[in-house]
């Protein structure tokens, strides 16, 4: 069983216990790369043994919906169970569906998660493309204007509830913008988010950026900050979790913690000291001209 499955099942368990929900009305997960370790195991066995002496377990567990399925099995949960696999928008896709289910009245508690794992093979293959910074042990590299980032992995789960008891945060918006580098398009989405929530840019206490330390890739985040949130406080989070397809899930987890505990962990390096309590956080992530915006508020 690959680590991604163990991470996912464990995080889902913690999450449900925390929310005091026994059996959610839906289990929705996002994963960019799926169960990499099992996929690689089965593939390498095929290639190394010339298609002989293969056993089914790693093949079965290579299926992308294994994490969601294992959670359902452990809970004996017969309810809705979807897995999204849309690159760096896998978690966001799952998030959009979760909110839709709640709005439809089809669910009052949705278990939402983002999971991805890093493997030695995945690391070394992507090294050839110059993806990674080597020999980095602190967040310092983030500010060095250099190429590459640090690999990451993780599982973050959330219970989304239409009638929460002791919530971490309220979800005000989850928006995705596809295939554009136009700042105008981004502005339109931001305007929509603001107008539907009666907010202005200055009301956002913290912008959490998906910057990952790669000089070239991070330009989009500095432009975003410069164009729309020049005066706002900002921080990155991928220096804490590394880069992976569903790292936005970690960002949402971090934002939820900040909003509930009303304190910002020392590892989060802010652009300046906040003047007041953080009550609105906007997360922004981007890849290949795709963008996601998630707005959370304290309750």
């Amino acid at each position: 069983m690959g680590r991604v499955i163990k991470m996912g099942v464990a995080a889902a368990n913690y999450c449900l216990r925390d929310a005091k929900v026994e059996n959610p009305d839906a289990i929705i997960t996002g994963t960019g790369m799926g169960c990499l370790e099992d996929t690689e195991n089965f593939l390498c066995n095929i290639l190394n043994n010339k298609e002989q002496f293969l056993t089914p377990t790693s093949f079965i567990q290579s299926t992308h919906n294994t994490v969601g399925a294992q959670i359902a099995l452990l809970l004996t949960c017969n309810n809705y169970n979807f897995t999204y696999v849309h690159r760096d928008l896998s978690f966001e896709s799952a998030f959009v569906d979760s909110i839709l289910l709640l709005k439809e009245g089809e669910a009052s508690n949705v278990l939402l998660g983002g999971v991805d794992e890093m493997t030695p093979n995945h690391y070394s293959i992507h090294s050839k493309k110059g993806f990674w910074r080597k020999g980095v042990t602190t967040s310092e590299f983030f500010y060095e204007n250099s190429k590459g980032t640090i690999p990451g992995e993780g599982a973050a789960f959330f219970t989304l509830s239409s009638s929460p008891k002791d919530p971490y945060a309220a979800v005000l918006a989850v928006e995705i913008l596809f295939n554009t580098n136009s700042q105008e398009d981004l502005k339109k989405i931001l305007d929509r988010i603001f107008s539907s929530n009666n907010l202005e840019a200055k009301d956002i206490d913290l912008i959490l950026l998906g910057a990952n330390g790669d000089q070239e890739g991070d330009r989009v985040y500095s432009e975003f900050k410069e164009n729309f949130f020049k005066e706002n406080n900002a921080a990155a989070y991928k220096n804490l979790c590394g880069e992976y397809s569903t790292s936005t899930a970690f960002g949402v987890w971090l934002a939820s913690q900040i909003l509930k505990k009303k304190e910002i962990p020392a590892g989060v390096s802010l652009s300046r000291t906040p003047e007041k309590e953080v009550s609105k956080i906007l997360l922004y992530n981007s890849y290949n001209g795709n963008h996601s915006l998630i707005l959370l508020s304290s309750c």
């Binding site: 002496f53 293969l54 056993t55 089914p56 377990t57 079965i60």
Partner: peptide, 9 residues
């Protein structure tokens, strides 16, 4: 049943 398949191999 999956373990059975593993044992067959």
């Amino acid at each position: 049943s999956i373990d059975a398949l593993e044992l067959i191999v």
